[in-house]
Design a protein around this nucleic acid. Structure first.
Lengths: 224, 224
DNA sequence: TAAGCAAACCAATCATGAATTGGTTCTGAC
DNA sequence: GTCAGAACCAATTCATGATTGGTTTGCTTA
């Protein structure tokens, strides 16, 4: 065996990385294979890889392997943290800021089947025999609008917003056995939103959604 | 077999749900078992379950089973999940939809010290000696606008959006050693945004932010 | 003695195939 | 026609073994 000092092994691994130009985030051979290929003991190879990992050239994980580039971020949007910092008023403000623009995107991108889905949710909400079911279909309508935006990132943000909303307004569900009155303000507002989306009227959809949420907000205040 | 009309089966299933009080979200026995237990044909049982599902009492999924309560939406609070589903184009679309409204809120709610902070970030970005530092101060400017909205939930959503953006556009950082040119388009656009916020001009701030992001988007396309 | 290599072992992960489950279609009995 | 039963399909779950980075042990060699 030739000189297998630490720096020599490190150089050989660097050379391997340079010659076999892996795509960024690409996977290196397993340590055992790479050690044999480079004619190096596994321990020495691991030392070199540790150095490269410290440099940020590669990252490793048990069971996964060794990869080029930096370790992908593992931050999850901490919904609990948001819940503790915020309050129902902020939630409503965020909805009024965010959802109209989602509706605008939906108006521009919704497929016919998605528009049919929106109409279906709307009808189910109108015919809901209880408040609980009404809210369920109302939620689904709003999320379907997010799906209709055809933007998975917008949908993800909307889901996050809704998760926070549910956590914040938890336990406030109306358990009144009565059903929403046939002239409930939301029904016509929902219809305006859905029709604007069906008409591909982005500005109209955004405006209708804004009016709807403002209406919900004012009724929320009346309850207190 | 006794009378197994649809309503009778439905009643028997409801009774089963009532007696075996499952936790919300609990799982019912498989259709085959439940049908035998209730001494009912599987088809009839499925009819009843379909009704219950339409009512929102249960939800079903192939391979998973039948569960009580509402179908949980797979909330993608996991940024990695969002990153894998989305793409740079969607990220830009989400920014254009979301950030102008954040700027609008900021115009209405920013404190004087926050406005000063915005001006500071703007100047630092203009004087940045490298592209990397410019992007750093640009990022901070956009986040400061989120802080100025005085809505922690909007700020949280903005942070989530930015985390996804960083992950998606990763490795595309310009490492050109040169600094942004003094007439870089963003400088004037930033100034318009900040001044609109300082003037408490919500519509103007939203408009300026939208123009800015559209400009960034078009330059992004030119690079390819 | 000290360093390095090989082997064995551990825990996390991945890959594969069998079993499970809701959804569908067909047949036969009434 | 209707309905129960069987068979089949596709999505999902579950169990099992293989893979992989991390660690320890022991032997060899300089």
């Amino acid at each position: 065996m030739i000189e297998n000092t630490d720096s020599a092994v490190l150089l050989r691994v660097r050379d391997f990385l340079a010659t076999t130009q892996l795509p960024d985030g690409g996977r290196l051979p397993p340590e055992r294979e790479l050690a044999e290929f480079l004619d190096v003991g596994r321990g020495a190879l691991r030392k070199a890889l540790a150095t490269l990992q410290a440099e940020g050239v590669v990252w490793r994980h048990v069971g996964k392997g060794t990869f080029t580039g930096e370790r992908p971020i593992d931050t999850v949007a901490d919904i609990n943290a948001m819940v503790q910092r915020t309050n129902p008023l902020e939630v409503m403000g965020a909805r009024i800021a965010f959802e109209p623009e989602v509706a605008r995107c939906a108006a521009l991108n919704a497929t016919p089947s998605q528009i049919a889905e929106l109409r279906g949710c709307m009808l189910k909400a109108q015919q809901a025999p209880t408040w609980r079911l009404y809210e369920q279909w109302d939620n689904r309508l709003h999320r379907s609008i997010g799906e209709a935006s055809q933007n998975s990132l917008l949908l993800g943000l909307l889901d996050t917003l809704n998760a926070v909303r549910r956590a914040v307004t938890w336990g406030r569900l109306r358990d009144t056995p009565v059903r929403p009155p046939p002239d409930h303000h939301s029904f016509e507002e929902h219809a305006r939103i859905v029709e604007a989306i069906a008409d591909r009227d982005g500005a109209g959809a955004a405006d209708a959604m804004r009016r709807h949420l403002r209406s919900v907000e004012s009724h929320m205040r009346d309850l207190r």
